[in-house]
């Protein structure tokens, strides 16, 4: 349907007013909200995610596309709730204690939201217990933690161990990411998943939640 393509295109260009206008138009045409979400907004976001993975677009393009998606979703939300559309999973995300950087973490959050996941963002400088408490309160399937510094990445090991030692063991998976993080580090601390970029993180999270 061309209006859904229009939504996807406008989203990829980060054109918020156009996205809002087209989403409203699609609703007026009687297209179900879930279809507008899946084939318009999420489809556009998926394209941006793929381009980002392939280095065809960069962080600013992803940020403005994600913003456009969020604005479009705001219009759809009451219709989605009325139609009983559920989140595909819940993720608790944050930057580890001692680390104050949030660009990467926010990007991952947006990409995950773009996959239809509910994301609880705990911000930066998040102590181990807050990750676990938030996972309990929100019945999350995933704790996703970010670190930019080699001085703070050790906190990830503490999070993995705390989950292992709690009743969340086997129920909550720990995902890790950030510039100094590698698959080797993930293997060494026993985290469940490492991804090298935000788009892959969103793919992996969706897979973990729907597996």
């Amino acid at each position: 349907m061309s209006i859904l393509n229009d939504i996807s295109d406008a989203l990829q260009q980060g054109r918020v007013p156009k996205v809002k206008e087209f989403v409203q138009q699609a609703l007026d045409e009687g297209i179900p909200a879930s279809e507008i979400l899946e084939q318009g907004l999420l489809s556009g976001m998926n394209t941006i995610g793929e381009k980002f993975k392939n280095n065809e677009v960069f962080v600013p393009e992803v940020l403005i596309a994600a913003r456009a998606m969020n604005k479009g979703t705001e219009i759809l939300r009451p219709h989605l709730v009325a139609a009983g559309v559920e989140d595909k999973g819940t993720v608790v995300i944050g930057t580890v204690k001692g680390d104050l950087h949030d660009i990467g973490k926010n990007l991952v959050r947006m990409m995950m939201e773009g996959k239809g996941l509910k994301v609880i963002d705990l911000g930066v400088d998040v102590p181990v217990e807050r990750f676990l408490d938030a996972a309990r309160e929100n019945h999350a399937q995933i704790i996703a933690c970010s670190a930019l510094l080699t001085t703070t990445m050790g906190e990830m090991r503490n999070i993995v161990e705390a989950v292992e030692d709690s009743e969340l063991k086997g129920k909550v998976r720990v995902m890790i990411g950030g510039a100094p993080i590698t698959q080797a580090y993930c293997d060494q601390i026993g985290a469940d998943c490492y991804t090298p970029d935000a788009a892959s993180a969103a793919d992996a999270a969706l897979q973990l939640c729907t597996a």
């Binding site: 980060g14 918020v16 962080v59 600013p60 940020l63 403005i64 913003r67 104050l100 950087h101 949030d102 660009i103 926010n106 930066v124 400088d125």
Partner: peptide, 24 residues
């Protein structure tokens, strides 16, 4: 950013990309 993405998106991008500065 204003040149590439327009005034409104530039404001949003600057806010997002510099938010960490306020955490320090």
């Amino acid at each position: 950013y204003v040149e590439l993405y327009g005034e409104e998106n530039a404001e949003y991008l600057m806010e997002h990309q510099n938010h960490w500065l306020h955490n320090y």
